[in-house]
């Protein structure tokens, strides 16, 4: 089935392309939304990701072991390129975030009770650089070295961005009404 899809896409068959889209679009949009700040950005990345998937399939004649993992990798790379192209993030250092030290020790409990949408909002609200590093490290499982290569930054920067992302999220959790409610409760 997947081989047929791959073969069809390599032959530029529109039917095969549509079938691939129908099957993997939900996963791809999930990835895109994690990396994008806004929904529109996520849609742009999504569109570009599928064009890249089709063109990569046509260009590459190598055997694809896991189509899902391969599509995931292409989508993540597209998101990173989008980050490079748009360069929207102006990672102005927030002093508040930088000096924020008041961690709520009970955030673990709180996190488990947060909905997917709330978690996604936590990620989306992160500065772009921090969001990229957090997504790549925490969810995609890349190492700091790999992230440094991909984002053209130093390893130390990757680590600090991750740390910063977590601090921001924890701070947000602590300051959110829900967190306070949970804490009181």
């Amino acid at each position: 089935m997947k081989e047929d899809l791959i073969k069809g896409c390599r032959k530029n068959s529109r039917k095969a392309q549509e079938a691939l889209y129908r099957e993997y679009a939900p996963k791809v949009i999930g990835i895109c939304r994690r990396y994008a700040t806004e929904r529109d950005d996520a849609d742009d990345i999504f569109q570009e990701a599928f064009i890249n998937i089709y063109s990569s399939l046509k260009k590459s004649k190598e055997e694809i072991q896991s189509l899902e993992a391969w599509i995931r990798r292409i989508s993540v790379n597209t998101a990173i390129n989008y980050y490079h192209k748009n360069k929207k993030y102006a990672d102005n250092l927030s002093i508040d975030y930088a000096k924020g030290q008041d961690y709520n020790q009970e955030y673990e409990k709180i996190l488990s009770k947060l909905s997917m949408q709330e978690l996604l909002e936590l990620i989306s609200d992160l500065p772009l650089g921090c969001k990229l590093v957090f997504n790549l490290y925490t969810i995609e499982g890349y190492s700091h070295k790999e992230i440094a290569e991909k984002l053209n930054i130093s390893e130390g920067t990757s680590k600090s961005q991750l740390s910063r992302a977590k601090n921001i999220m924890k701070t947000k959790i602590n300051h959110s009404n829900k967190v306070r409610y949970e804490s009181i409760a």
Binding site: Y21, A25, P26, K27, D43, I123, F134
Partner: peptide, 19 residues
């Protein structure tokens, strides 16, 4: 881990006019 577990294979609805 909280994020990894829940977002690793998270799916969302693609744009209506995506295709």
């Amino acid at each position: 881990g909280h994020f990894r577990d829940r977002f690793e294979s998270w799916e969302d609805a693609p744009p209506a006019d995506g295709w």
